[in-house]
């Protein structure tokens, strides 16, 4: 259709213009063909699977849903998910902020090496991370051996399997994700604002609290929402580092589907997860747009 446009001035007369318009329209919708493969793929791998899940969730009926609200597996996991995600978000964003600030303010060497290490941590598969934290935090693991050798503790601290190991690993997993949104706001800060504050006599601490922090807050909010969204979907880390009592919502979905073979309840819990994550994702996108 673009070709017709450029030729446009050459063609005169009503009929040819109309023919061109028809061809243009046909050409335009012919472009739908470009989208067909992805539509087919998404139909098979996304839309129909979700459709079945929604249908199964509704098959549960009102009685089933009210049972779910009194199901301690579900309520316990929901509570765990909210509490753990909140705590992890706070700690992870603090750690990410310190790293982002160092990458932003550091010299060329500090910046390059910090970035490289963060990217390596970011790309390392979650499986290596759970192996590492298992080896580090188990009863006869590196940390307990070290602390006992130093005489800090008499018996081993029971960190794994359990919530401590699980939360530490989840924090470590999400920190790199939180760095990017914060850093992208920092690098766009106008240096002159800081300089103005400094030349008016503000101490570095004052500049940070009253200038840098408020200006980077949009990045912090975006990072927090992103981390929270990631936390609500955690499956592998709780399954491998936590006890059955520490499981999150995603683990309950898997438990009902794979062990208890109750797809209605599994689908219902999955739907709850999707709605929560969907709302949070929309909020995240708003926050992320605000950082630009």
């Amino acid at each position: 259709m673009m070709a017709l446009r450029t030729i446009g001035p050459d063609v005169s007369g009503q009929s040819s213009v109309r023919a061109a318009a028809v061809a243009a329209r046909r050409g335009r919708w012919g472009n739908l063909l470009w989208l067909l493969p992805v539509l087919a793929l998404y139909a098979a791998g996304l839309v129909l699977p979700l459709g079945i899940t929604v249908r199964r969730a509704f098959e549960l009926g009102a009685a089933g849903w009210s049972d779910l609200l009194h199901n301690s597996l579900f309520t316990g996991a929901a509570l765990n998910t909210v509490i753990d995600s909140t705590g992890i978000t706070v700690v992870a964003v603090l750690l990410a902020y310190s790293l982002a600030a160092a990458i932003w303010r550091g010299g060329a060497i500090a910046r390059a090496s910090l970035t490289t290490l963060v990217v390596i941590a970011f790309l390392t598969t979650v499986l290596v991370k759970i192996v590492a934290f298992n080896a580090l935090l188990r009863d006869n693991g590196v940390l307990n051996t070290l602390l006992q050798a130093l005489g800090v503790i008499d018996g081993p601290l029971h960190l794994f399997p359990g919530r401590p190991a699980m939360i530490v690993a989840m924090v470590q997993y999400v920190v790199p994700f939180a760095i990017f949104p914060i850093l992208s706001v920092m690098v766009r800060l106008d240096k002159r604002v800081e300089q103005a504050a400094e030349s008016l006599g503000a101490s570095p601490w004052h500049v940070f609290v009253h200038v840098v922090l408020p200006l980077t807050l949009p990045g912090v909010i975006a990072a927090a929402l992103l981390v929270f969204v990631i936390c609500t979907g955690f499956y592998v880390i709780p399954a491998t580092l936590g006890t059955p009592r520490d499981q999150l919502l995603a683990n309950v979905v898997a438990l009902y589907a794979l062990q208890l073979v109750d797809f209605r309840v599994a689908s219902a819990v999955a739907m709850v997860l999707v709605v929560v994550v969907g709302v949070l994702t929309v909020l995240y996108q708003r926050a992320e747009r605000a950082t630009r």
């Binding site: 979700l50 079945i52 899940t53 995603a250 979905v253």
Partner: peptide, 12 residues
């Protein structure tokens, strides 16, 4: 959430 996708894909 990957687990939701996994559940749906498993069923379909």
């Amino acid at each position: 959430p990957v687990v939701t996708l996994a559940l749906g894909i498993f069923q379909f």
